[in-house]
């Protein structure tokens, strides 16, 4: 399975944000998307996720088979927003996403434990701090399996210990043959990660 983007362009509101972006990602591969604010990092991730239309070029998943027909089906997307309901408890949120997204991977308890939230799964999501909310959103990546993780500023709001913990989770995902595309300003402590530098052609 390979994630291939070729000569990709993305636009928002009719204005081209980036163009002629290409990359190839093999199983176990990690790509860090860097660049100044407004360079189109988030737009690139949303285009790959299928949330924004492709303005030019192609992006696709090669030999994904019936299980992963297109990038959107094969991707976990962790954007700026956590995708959790504040009125539900952390466990209810995760259990819903697990049932809705299918491809069960880790149990909810185990996923919460691995992001260090094992004790507070029963609390409403609204009661959590910013960093804890982010960690709960990261736990969503673990409860159901997707080969590709699209991460948009994944470590926003995390403290140093949680960052290290998250880096370990990413390494484990890569070791299992997963792929990661992460847009970030900060180094993510992943060895052998490729870098895609988006130009500031704003």
């Amino acid at each position: 399975m390979r994630l291939v983007a070729d000569n990709l362009a993305g636009e928002r509101g009719g204005e081209t944000i980036f163009s002629k972006v290409g990359f190839t990602l093999d199983p176990g591969g990690c790509l860090l998307v860097t660049g100044p604010n407004g360079a189109g990092k988030s737009t690139l991730l949303r285009v790959v996720a299928g949330l924004l239309p492709v303005a030019a070029g192609t992006v696709g998943l090669e030999s994904g088979g019936e299980r992963w027909p297109d990038p959107a089906a094969a991707c976990h997307y962790l954007g700026h927003l956590n995708g959790m309901k504040v009125a539900l408890t952390v466990e209810e949120n995760l259990r819903f996403w697990q049932q809705f997204m299918g491809e069960m991977h880790l149990a909810v308890d185990a996923a919460l434990d691995s992001v260090g939230l094992g004790e507070i799964g029963h609390l409403p999501f609204a009661y959590l701090s910013t960093g804890q909310k982010r960690r709960a959103a990261i736990a969503r990546l673990l409860v159901s399996h997707r080969p590709v993780w699209l991460l948009d500023e994944p470590t926003a709001g995390l403290d140093t210990a949680s960052e290290a913990q998250f880096a370990a989770l990413m390494r484990a995902h890569l070791k299992e043959g997963g792929m990661i595309v992460a847009a970030t300003h900060l180094p993510l402590a992943i060895e052998g990660a490729g870098e895609l530098r988006m130009g500031g052609n704003v």
Partner: peptide, 14 residues
């Protein structure tokens, strides 16, 4: 507003 809609849309294949 909380980002769930993106995930619902992305899961359209399943």
């Amino acid at each position: 507003e909380d980002g769930s809609l993106d995930l619902l849309v992305m899961n359209g294949a399943r």
